[in-house]
């Protein structure tokens, strides 16, 4: 089982961004996807750091890919997306618009924000040049199993969301700006204050979602800690770890220990809860009644 570090979903200061990828160069992961996924307005703050980070990661022996935006609407976003291929590394498609710009003979990978729900779509993407697909987090185990089999038959590596707050929705509207009663064009980068997203609570004070600019995430930190064997046996070849602040190298090491048999599900879950600063874990999309559920929930806790 490989480990992929997914693109950072949040808005981090440029120095923190660079430090993170310096650490990832040393982390026990095979692959790193970087670049801006959520909001094109953030990019100018760290865009000049991307080539150096790619170089460092490649020198450390990592596979590197650069992500597209999740939602491409504006002219400058279309131009930016068309230019991704110039980064000199593989492009990860997270908005199907990207396909319009990729030459037909160039292999690419597909991220979790493209709707790959069935064999027909997987096959069409494989014919178009997809070599790796990270499945949408929403998929239940039956679908993951069927798609992993199809991926194996088509020579496409199948990856599954392994760790991190779940990307649940993307919008044209910025919720951080709305919260601060600002327009999107005058957002003043309110999302920078919440480098892991801002928890959204119900009126009963139950943590539920998290806002991250135009993106809405789960409050819970999804984790496949308890599902590793099931996914491995289904033919899943890689797990995606989505960046958060704190000791993310520790998260990568703990996952490597789990894959190599040095940590069991319970020990990994405990380690992740500690490293994530007490975030609730979830894996309900895969095997639960709803996405928010957690298969290791104790009695009396939210399932």
């Amino acid at each position: 089982m490989q480990l992929t570090v997914g693109p950072n979903q949040f808005f981090w200061k440029a120095d923190a961004w660079s430090d993170f990828y310096d650490q990832m160069a040393k982390a026990p992961v095979e692959r790193v996807v970087l670049g801006e996924l959520v909001c094109s307005k953030r990019l100018p703050f760290y865009q000049d750091r991307i080539p150096g980070a790619i170089e460092t990661l490649l020198a450390a022996g990592k596979e590197v890919a650069v992500t597209s935006l999740a939602l491409v609407t504006l002219k400058r976003e279309r131009k930016l997306t068309a230019g991704l291929i110039d980064a000199g590394v593989e492009v990860e498609v997270n908005d199907p618009t990207t396909l319009a710009y990729l030459p037909k003979d160039v292999p690419f990978s597909v991220g979790p924000l493209v709707n790959v729900y069935n064999e027909g779509t997987l096959g069409w993407l494989a014919d178009r040049g997809a070599t790796r697909i990270c499945l949408p987090p929403e998929l239940p185990l039956e679908s993951v199993t069927a798609l992993a089999a199809e991926g194996a038959a088509r020579g496409v590596t199948i990856e599954v969301w392994g760790h991190g707050r779940l990307p649940l929705a993307i919008s044209g509207r910025c919720y951080h700006a709305r919260l601060h009663k600002r327009t999107k064009d005058n957002c003043q980068f309110a999302c920078e204050d919440d480098p892991d997203g801002l928890t959204v609570r119900t009126l009963e004070d139950q943590p539920f979602l998290a806002m991250n600019g135009v993106q809405t995430l789960s409050d819970s930190c999804a984790s496949m800690a308890n599902q590793f064997e099931v996914l491995r046996d289904a033919g899943v070849k890689a797990l995606r770890l989505s960046p958060h602040t704190g000791d993310f190298s520790g998260v990568c090491r703990a996952w490597r220990d789990r894959i190599d048999g040095r940590l069991d599900a319970a020990a990994l879950s405990e380690t992740l809860e500690t490293l994530s600063g007490g975030m609730r874990l979830s894996d309900g999309f895969l095997t639960g009644a709803r996405g928010a559920d957690w298969s290791r929930a104790k009695e009396g806790e939210p399932a």
Binding site: N115, P136, E138, A169, I170, S171, T216, G284, G288, R290
Partner: peptide
């Protein structure tokens, strides 16, 4: 819909049932 349609799994996160699936 205020979210990009077909790209939202808020409903299945809370209920297990979504527009897409």
């Amino acid at each position: 819909c205020v979210m990009a349609e077909g790209r939202c799994s808020l409903s299945s996160y809370a209920t297990g049932l979504s527009p897409n699936m």
